[in-house]
Simulated assay, not measured.
Amino acid sequence: MPRRVARVWSCILVAVDEIQRGRWMWSVLSTCEVPAGERFDWYSDIVSREVMPAALSSEQPAEFQGEAAVLDLGDVRVSRFSLSPLQSRRTAAMIRRGDPEQYQLALLRKGATSLSQHRNECVIGLGDLMLWDTSRPSYNRMSATGGQVQATILLLPRDIVPLRTQRLDQVLARRIPGGEGLAAILSSFMTALEDHGAECGPQELRRLGSVAVDLATACLAQHIDTEDQLPAEVRTQALVQRIHAFIEHNLGDPELNPSAVAAHHHLSVRTLHQLFHDRGESVRARIRRRRLERCRSDLIDPGLRARHVSAIAARWGFSGPAVFSRSFREAYGISPTEFRALCVDDF
């Protein structure tokens, strides 16, 4: 590799465990500082050396641009990439040269991609998910109309996914619609990881890694009809995440309460409370906290300064201004009106 390219690489690949202002950083590589004529070759070389051996090709290599990043979640990593359309082929010979031995589960954020692996083929679009195995040959073609392909990927070591290989083979290179059920919850989780993962500390990231494995496993099991074979703790974690997602989508409903949550998930209220008993926060407390946090965000928002405090309270499900004011003061030590005034003064 030319010396100037090596210097660029050493500057832009930041160690994952580097802490800056108390935040763990994404490790990033980008073609932005590489001379235009060398970008595609440089990117191809980096992928083969630092990720896994693969043969990349592009119809317009001179115009290629690409950026990729990874965040460590303990045993799991999450990566994101944005790059010009290309094709990637991984052969048995390349697998013998180097294999991270991972299942990689991708959420497509922009563009389209097709994948062939293990006698399966699929084409996915915006919001869809798909799975592939780095230990099997594959062919991937990415496309985008007038732009780049963007995706978020969970990198899951094969030995931590508690599903049999023969069963997972059924879902390799299969489109998983990301708009409903467990897939929708997993998609929201992966999006949040990309958007906010760097705000978390090392212990929080490790916990998020465990959640990622549980949600991914539950989602894949659902698509191969093996959900009942999952370990009890995985099923429980997936259920809790479904409940969290239901609460988030219904915070504005004043009728949202433990009884409504239990009924929607076909649980008794007693079972629901037992489910949350060891999680440090009851269902009722979570609903209250999330409503207050949403209200607090609205009170800070300059675009909502004309909206009355009582309207913000009603938007997020509080039964009345007095109840909201009392709850807000208990949580933050100041009334909503006083909090908003302080925020306006800060601006």
Rank of each mutant, 00 (worst) to 15 (best):
M1I: 15
R4K: 07
A6W: 00
V8I: 15
V8F: 10
W9F: 15
C11R: 11
I12H: 03
L13V: 15
I19Y: 13
I19F: 10
G22C: 07
S27A: 10
S30Y: 02
E33D: 14
G37F: 08
D41N: 09
D41F: 00
I46R: 08
V47E: 12
R49E: 14
V51S: 09
P53D: 02
A55N: 13
E59T: 15
V70G: 09
L71Q: 05
L71C: 04
L73N: 08
V76D: 01
R77Q: 07
R80C: 06
F81I: 02
F81Q: 01
L83M: 11
S84N: 05
P85H: 00
L86Y: 15
R97I: 08
R97D: 13
Y103N: 02
L107F: 06
L108T: 03
K110C: 09
K110V: 00
K110F: 06
S114Y: 04
Q117N: 01
R119K: 14
V123Q: 12
I124W: 05
I124V: 13
G125L: 00
L126E: 05
L131H: 04
R136N: 11
P137R: 06
N140R: 14
M142T: 08
G147Y: 01
V149N: 02
A151D: 04
P157I: 02
R158I: 10
D159Y: 04
I160T: 08
P162C: 07
D169Q: 13
D169W: 07
R175H: 06
I176A: 05
P177R: 03
G179F: 14
L182N: 01
A183D: 10
A184E: 12
I185W: 06
M190A: 03
T191Q: 11
A192K: 05
L193M: 10
G197E: 08
A198R: 09
P202D: 02
R206F: 02
R206D: 11
L208P: 06
S210A: 13
A216T: 09
T217S: 10
A218Q: 04
C219D: 01
C219E: 04
L220S: 03
I224L: 12
T226A: 11
Q229H: 11
Q229N: 12
Q229G: 11
L230C: 09
A232L: 08
E233R: 05
T236S: 06
T236V: 04
R242N: 02
R242S: 08
I243Q: 06
H244I: 10
P258S: 10
S259C: 07
S259H: 06
H264K: 13
H266C: 10
L267V: 06
L267E: 01
V269Y: 07
V269H: 12
T271D: 10
Q274P: 00
L275K: 03
H277N: 11
H277T: 06
D278R: 12
R284W: 04
I287N: 05
C295V: 10
C295Y: 03
C295M: 12
R296Q: 13
L299N: 00
D301L: 03
L304H: 04
R305L: 13
R307A: 08
H308W: 09
V309S: 12
I312M: 14
A313H: 06
A314G: 13
F318H: 03
P321A: 03
F324V: 01
S325G: 15
R326C: 13
S327H: 14
F328T: 00
A331G: 08
A331T: 04
Y332I: 08
R340A: 12
A341T: 10
L342T: 02
C343N: 14
D346R: 14
